[in-house]
Design a protein around this nucleic acid. Structure first.
Lengths: 333, 333
DNA sequence: CGAACCAATGTAACCGGTTACATCGACCAA
DNA sequence: TTGGTCGATGTAACCGGTTACATTGGTTCG
């Protein structure tokens, strides 16, 4: 492996000059620079980045913790992150954690280890031990955010969005509106549920626990949840699913039961993933500027890393939009 | 930042003893070990991994280049990779490259840079300059493999799989079978196309260029391709899509044209992504052991890294399975 | 009793860059 | 002429671990 000393020898200069010729070309004379670059070229020299990182205490790497990269919503967030990061000269190291806390801690350690300069967490879990350390770690929480202000957060007003969706269903005349929830402990689920409940209350519709089904954001869980909703004495005329995958699973089960969507029953989703538009019928859902979540998170994180003052409890709320397609329609008489 | 010297001082031993107590506990006396571990505990010492990596020339990181992490097939491959890697003590750094060659080269440089020990490429592109270097770089190519034997490869016999699917359609009585291809330059597309053509030839069906449409694996491209197939004087009675996303897009367009699947026209996919089962109708497709692709790739890569002899042109061919669902049926009379 | 050996630990070189500080020669102004 | 300044470059310390080799003290055996 050719190192900086070999290059220095070839160019007939000191290692310091080689380093300078590569990192701050303007401080070496043009002739020397030429000579060094020629030697670099001839020797095929590539700096050993572990040495550079070790010495300079910077890596220009960002770690991103994603619960499931397969989720097309997260995929869009990721592409926003990558775009912004590469524009700012950072590489993105993606970690598909499957919501495993130990895996998240291990990857987060890359920051305390100095293998990465900062971390973006897309889940409501703080992966470090020192929750209250004085100098906040360079971390940003996006999408599903934590309640505690342990680091800057980029999020959606899930409560408001769920409320808008529920109001949409109410306006269509629905009064028995089922809900298929996301994972039990997710703040995202809690907020969407609250929005749904508030909208019902505003409309003077009494809450009904039996209409609220557990789910886990998977296609299969949407499918299963519908089975239990259909057993009810008085069936709902609309089902609000906390994400589009579950809506797709739900629709499948409804069709199997011989029900037409939306004539017999309406189904709403959340996220506006690409499959939502191609579903039969296309799904009414909440669209989020996913890429912007990523860009915003990177912008905050880079500010933290580069020393710009970012308040630990900074918070960016992103806009959402109700996208009405054909999976929702007037309540049957 | 507490370092090994501080810990050594606290424990009243030398830095070498601290290092040994942590890395090879059996060579230090139990009492000393206790003392060191206590000091580590009290000081909150965490080894600086950049120093460890720099010194030991190993990182225990694997880079994985994925064209699009959102693709649910790749997501399964990734989870196989992660499972196998973590079992062998390696961390996985995922890179969503969007098939951008420069991005792939940049991330691949992490290996030549020594920021990672090896790389798994899920696309048919060799991201290093020195194609013919004497000591092969620790790289494994999986899923969409290159024709040149530049590194070990883990792949599917796409030709055989496409042939099986086409034979399935022929057996159902179809003689005008359209095809929606994947990206132009992909070897995967070329092989699947060849399998399709061979099956037609075996069945004595003359080839018809007009039945072969370009696509790019996206939902939208499947949708668009069907539009052009429907313009044909004599419409196909079956369409073989090179992946499930395009099949879903195709079905949507067919329904919009008032055609029933599979009564009026059959549609087949490839990959068996989770949405395939939830489509209406569920899609007939080719299932691949996606997780095994990942596990196999890691196994080969780790062997290369750890010096076990792996032939540069090693090649593992994974099995596939025809999954018949309801999107294919007998050809209409 | 002394040589040989061994377990436990210490000393210090080393990995490959970066950079503070030193050095040197050219040029300029007093 | 001389002291000061400045641009270009060299010297060497340093980052924080790992590990070859040296050292020490105790035990075993001829």
């Amino acid at each position: 492996m050719t190192n900086i000393r070999k290059v220095a020898e070839m160019a007939g200069v000191s290692v310091a000059t080689v380093s300078r010729a590569l990192k701050s070309p303007d401080v070496v004379s043009p002739e020397t620079r030429e000579r060094v670059l020629a030697a670099v070229e001839r020797s095929g020299y590539r700096p050993n980045m572990t040495a550079v990182q070790f010495r300079s205490q910077r890596t220009r790497n960002l770690v991103v913790l994603v619960p499931t990269v397969a989720n097309t919503f997260f995929a869009r967030v990721i592409s926003g992150i990558q775009e912004a990061a590469s524009r700012q000269g950072y590489a993105v190291l993606l970690c598909n954690t499957m919501a495993d806390e130990q895996a998240e801690r291990d990857y987060a350690a890359m920051v305390t280890n100095r293998q990465a300069d900062g971390i973006i967490q897309l889940r409501a879990f703080y992966p470090f031990d020192d929750q209250q350390s004085l100098d906040p770690l360079p971390m940003v929480n996006a999408c599903e955010v934590m309640d505690d202000a342990l680091c800057p957060r980029v999020h959606l007003d899930n409560r408001a969005a769920a409320r808008v969706m529920t109001e949409h269903l109410v306006q269509l005349g629905h009064r028995r509106i089922g809900m298929i929830k996301g994972p039990r402990l997710s703040p995202l689920t809690r907020d969407r549920l609250r929005g749904y409940q508030e909208a019902l209350e505003d409309a003077g519709i009494p809450p009904d626990e039996k209409l609220i089904c557990p789910g886990d954001f998977s296609l299969a869980s949407g499918y299963r949840a519908v089975a239990s909703l259909l057993e009810q004495r008085q069936r709902p005329t609309a089902i609000f699913c906390e994400n589009d995958e579950m809506a797709i699973g739900a629709i499948k089960r409804l069709k199997e039961a011989g029900l037409r969507v939306p004539e017999d029953i309406s189904v709403a989703g959340f996220d506006d993933i690409s499959f939502a538009r191609y579903s039969d019928p296309p799904i009414t859902t909440i669209a989020q500027p996913a890429e912007d979540f990523g860009r915003e998170a990177v912008s905050l994180l880079v500010s933290m890393i580069e020393g710009t003052d970012v308040k630990r409890d900074a918070r960016r709320t992103m806009p959402f939009e109700l996208v009405v397609r054909n999976s929702t329609g007037p309540a049957p008489l």
